[in-house]
């Protein structure tokens, strides 16, 4: 601004008041800009219909025989429901916790009185591939992408995955019916 002759540069009598006005204007404008950005971020979240579609689902277990498994989808995720054999249950219960990378008992991963049923989210905790059931060395799941091996309780035993297959929230509505979610 210096050198532009017409612009008088006389010092303001009250520099503090002037500064306050400038700072207040800048601050209010800044707050407005941040507040205006919020809807543009918030709209990226799941919309109401997506959330509503993620409501709990019921699954009938009656058709699943011992040694079989079914895959159902809840919130776009594959859920393995496995009717485990006696051998699988014993293996899952007898393994020493200290030998597990992510120690967790089989009891904590199943519902009491319904020990033959394993319900897990079938997404490898490594990078999101779908492991194959009844594959691998531990009678459980094997992820073909990067070789992670899960046991018959869905716990990680070997390979790059850091954690067990998560158990979704579910409960038994009757002996042959569960509600997931």
């Amino acid at each position: 601004m210096k050198g532009l002759g017409i612009v008088t540069t006389e010092a303001s009598a009250e520099p503090t008041r002037r500064d306050f006005l400038f700072i207040a204007t800048g601050a209010v404008a800044g707050v407005g800009a941040v507040a205006a950005a919020w809807p543009f971020v918030s709209q990226m979240n799941p919309d109401a219909s997506t959330i509503a579609a993620g409501a709990p689902i019921e699954v009938d277990l009656a058709p699943v025989a011992v040694g079989q498994d079914i895959k159902v989808f809840w919130r776009g995720k594959p859920i393995y429901i496995m009717n485990r054999t006696k051998k699988q249950i014993e293996e899952a219960q007898s393994v020493a916790l200290s030998s597990l990378p992510d120690p967790e008992t089989d009891k904590a991963r199943t519902k009491e009185g319904h020990e033959q049923w394993l319900v897990v989210i079938g997404i490898c905790t490594h990078l999101g591939c779908i492991p194959m059931a009844y594959e691998g060395k531990y009678d459980g799941f094997f992820c073909p992408c990067h070789g992670s091996q899960y046991d018959s309780s869905g716990r990680i035993r070997q390979g790059p995955a850091p954690a067990n297959l998560p158990v979704p929230p579910y409960q038994f509505v009757s002996d042959t019916k569960i509600q997931i979610g």
């Binding site: 809807p39 918030s42 709209q43 979240n45 919309d47 109401a48 219909s49 997506t50």
Partner: peptide, 13 residues
């Protein structure tokens, strides 16, 4: 209409 009804702030946008 879904965008207006269901998306967060969809009506505003």
């Amino acid at each position: 209409e879904r965008l207006v009804r269901d998306v967060n702030y969809g009506w505003l946008l």
